[in-house]
Amino acid sequence: SNFITLEALDRVIGITSSRFLFNKEMKQRLKEGTTKKIGMEGNFDAEVIIQANPDLILISPFKRGGYDSLKELGIPLLPHLGYKEMTPLGQAEWIKCMGLLVGLESEAIARFETIEKRYNELLQLTAGVKKRPVVFSGELRGGNWYAVGGRSFLAQLFRDAGADYFLKDDTRSGGVTLDFETVYSQADKADFWRILNSYPGEFSYNALKAEDSRYADFRAFREKGVVYCNLRERAFYESSPTQPEVVLADLIRAFHPDLLPDHTPVYYELIK
Rank of each mutant, 00 (worst) to 15 (best):
L21Y: 05
L123N: 14
D262C: 03
D160M: 03
Y267F: 15
R214S: 14
G90H: 02
L157W: 08
L157F: 06
F112I: 05
M86I: 10
A92E: 06
D10G: 14
V246M: 09
K37C: 07
T5R: 01
Y237D: 09
W193K: 02
N197K: 02
T35N: 06
V102A: 06
Q124W: 04
Y67L: 09
A161C: 03
L6K: 03
I57E: 01
L125F: 13
Q91N: 08
R172E: 13
A235V: 04
F255L: 03
D188R: 12
N2H: 14
S204W: 07
A108V: 07
A46S: 15
K37R: 04
G90Q: 01
E113I: 11
T242N: 14
Y83E: 10
R232G: 08
K117F: 11
R19T: 11
V134E: 09
T242W: 01
V246I: 14
Q186I: 09
V135M: 02
D262I: 00
L157D: 00
E121S: 10
D55Q: 12
S106A: 14
E72S: 15
K189E: 11
D262V: 01
S17F: 05
G39R: 01
K209D: 07
M98D: 07
I49Y: 00
S185T: 12
F180Y: 12
T177Y: 11
K96W: 04
N230H: 03
D68Q: 12
F192S: 00
K27N: 08
A8C: 10
W145L: 01
